[in-house]
Design a protein around this nucleic acid. Structure first.
Lengths: 142, 142
DNA sequence: GTAACTGCAAACCTTTTGCAGCTTG
DNA sequence: CAAGCTGCAAAAGGTTTGCAGTTAC
């Protein structure tokens, strides 16, 4: 599962192209949703990759520092989750029941940020929004 | 710093009125912003209260289960923060630089949630929003 | 060849738990 | 007095770090 794109990308960012980094990046791309370090670790094990959990954390740290990955903490539990930084502004819709997460494209907050900036005299540069509810499947079960 | 209101409140919720709970509740009221368990612990120590950190966590747990307190995790670091649940829908504006937090009253998402509900067929019941930027003081320093 | 990366084990930090003793209603 | 709190110390997650050995460029 060697990936030429990754090789080029890593070179551009000035980091070495190792098997572990390559695979970690592929998994993040495949998932395309915030995942825990643990999950990445397990997927790598599954794929018969020799890797340790601390390496996963170190790789993610490097990816974050190079702007390739974003780290966040979801509100419920206190585990960090990681996802590819594809520079796309987006939010997530999360099911209270099954914890499924789906991407919401578009953002309703552009105008609001401007208003808030005037009201508060802050220099507003970002926000974080998660929407919660029950997905169609879980909604029925209730 | 005995507080009669707390006594009545605790009685109504069916929990015992101890010095530690009383003081913890007072601190949360005074702060009126999300704080860590550690900070509550330190404030109690400062006030010469004999308390252990695990008791703080246990008290917060009880308060949460009775609906008196809300727990959340902020995006940056992985420590939980706790605040009084005054049933008011609100969000926070957080300074990237000095980490100061201020309450934003009002919410721009009411209409958006309805639209999203139709689009996604989810049963939407809540959201979580934090706005980030630089406060007037830190803005100048830059 | 050397600077950078990895695995392993141990440390760290926040949060939880078990238990014996103490307090509240 | 009994039920339920608390303090202490130890355990339990998730994450980070030190170090010796390995790998990529």
């Amino acid at each position: 599962m060697e990936n030429l794109d990754n090789k080029v990308l890593f070179a551009k960012k000035g980091i070495k192209n190792t098997k572990q980094r390559n695979m970690t990046y592929n998994i993040l791309m495949q998932e395309n949703l915030p995942v825990t370090a643990e999950l990445i670790f397990l997927k790598l094990k599954e794929a018969d990759e020799k890797i340790s959990l601390s390496t996963v954390y170190r790789i993610l740290e490097v990816f974050i520092s190079k702007g390739l990955v974003i780290k966040r903490n979801l509100s419920e539990d206190n585990m960090a989750v990681f996802e590819i930084n594809n520079m796309e502004h987006k939010h997530h819709l999360i099911c209270y029941c099954c914890k499924k997460m789906q991407v919401i494209k578009g953002c309703p907050l552009g105008a609001y940020e401007k208003i808030l900036q005037e009201q508060t005299d802050y220099d507003i540069s970002g926000h974080r929004l998660e929407i919660y509810g029950y997905c169609p499947d879980c909604k029925e079960k209730k």
